[in-house]
Simulated scan of single mutants.
Amino acid sequence: MLRGFSAVFYREMQMLISRIGGLGYLFSGLLFPMIYLLAFGWGLGDRVAVAGGYFAYLAKGMLAITVMMNGFQQTALSVSAARFYYRNFSTLRLSPISDSALVFGIALAGTVRALAAAAVIFLTARLFFGLEILSLPGLGGLVLTAFAFAAFGVAVGLSIKGQEQFSIIINFFITPMTFFCGSFFPVANLPEAVRQVVQFLPLSLTNQLLRADSFGESSLWEAGLLLAITLCTYAYGVYRVHGYREF
């Protein structure tokens, strides 16, 4: 079913390596979380009362945001550029690789890209704020989130008809999750009606897993739900590839 995905993954990683030489590409996905991490970390610091300290709380929230943004944005932009500018996505569709393997390969490359960006944020947080090593639930949450949003990025990259539609996804889906899913403050601080919705969003689940010390009843439920969301986004990506037509 996934036979041939390694070729797609290798192609995507080669393209990534060729782009890393440009400093703008290298730092574009890191600038937003890095600024928030340093500005809020230095500006607020211990003034915000959060269990375990606000530095650690904010740093883990920035890790979640980093994998979400880099997994989604970079993958969606790469796929849409292959359609609109390079006109070479149809070449992948003509190759003897299944739709599921194609999506898996592209999403896996997006996952690696997102986790690499998160590693930079983690090292910065550890250097400036002494962030501790992440727990197993936290690491698992980051991997699932990176893959989920990368797969969603494949679907969006194949669905949009222009840059304005991509901006709509960012403004109405990605940005609200950035600020309301527990990255900057606990979800419990939100109004009850909002919290009942927000707690089931993937970024909220990721933040909860990042702040769990070990797998327990709650973290296992959150990990299971995040896994289900990941499988759904992957299936949606495969569906979009299967129905894709160049013209």
Rank of each mutant, 00 (worst) to 15 (best):
Ala119Lys: 00
Ile133Gly: 00
Arg3Glu: 14
Pro191Asp: 03
Gly61Tyr: 11
Arg113Trp: 09
Tyr57Trp: 06
Arg93Val: 12
Ser6Asp: 15
Phe173Ala: 09
Asn171Leu: 15
Leu38Tyr: 08
Ala146Thr: 12
Gly71Thr: 11
Gly4Ser: 10
Met13Thr: 05
Leu16Val: 10
Glu192Ser: 13
Leu142Thr: 09
His242Phe: 09
Gly4Leu: 02
Gly29Ala: 11
Leu123Cys: 08
Phe152Ser: 02
Leu77Gln: 11
Leu58Asn: 02
Gly140Tyr: 04
Thr111Asp: 06
Tyr244Glu: 11
Arg47Phe: 01
Gly224Ile: 06
Phe32Gln: 05
Ile65Arg: 06
Val197Lys: 06
Ala116Lys: 00
Ile35Thr: 10
Ala64Gln: 05
Met13Asn: 00
Arg87Gln: 13
Val79Gln: 01
Asp99Leu: 04
Leu127Ser: 01
Ser78Cys: 04
Ser80Glu: 00
Ala82Thr: 00
Glu164Tyr: 11
Leu94Trp: 06
Asn207Cys: 07
Gln163Gly: 12
Val112Ile: 15
Gly71Met: 14
Gln196Asp: 15
Thr145Arg: 13
Leu220Lys: 12
Met34Ile: 15
Phe72Ser: 05
Ile35Ser: 10
Glu12Asn: 10
Leu158Gln: 06
Val194Gln: 11
Ala59Met: 01
Ala51Ser: 07
Ser28Leu: 08
Ile229Val: 14
Ala125His: 00
Leu102Val: 07
Gly105Ser: 09
Ala49Met: 11
Met15Ile: 10
Gly140His: 04
Thr66Arg: 04
Arg211Tyr: 07
Met34Tyr: 06
Asp213Met: 10
Ile35Met: 08
Gly141Trp: 07
Thr111Arg: 04
Ala193His: 12
Ala101Leu: 09
Leu142Gln: 13
Thr145Asp: 03
Tyr244His: 13
Ser135His: 04
Arg240Met: 12
Ser28His: 05
Ala223Arg: 02
Tyr25Ala: 01
Val154Met: 10
Gln163Phe: 14
Gln73Asn: 13
Ser80Ala: 08
Asn171Ala: 15
Glu192Met: 12
Gly157Pro: 05
Leu30Asp: 03
Gly71Asn: 07
Ala150Tyr: 12
Gly157Ser: 09
Ile106Lys: 12
Ala7Glu: 13
Phe172Glu: 02
Arg93Asp: 02
Leu210Asn: 08
Val112Ser: 05
Arg83Lys: 15
Ala188Arg: 06
Arg3Phe: 11
Leu92Pro: 00
Glu192His: 14
Leu23Pro: 14
Thr66Lys: 07
Thr124Phe: 05
Gly24Ala: 04
Ser95Asn: 12
Phe32Gly: 05
Thr178Met: 08
Gly153Glu: 04
Ala59Tyr: 02
Phe89His: 11
Phe9Val: 01
Gly140Gln: 05
Gly45Asp: 04
Ser18Glu: 08
Gly4His: 07
Tyr85Ser: 15
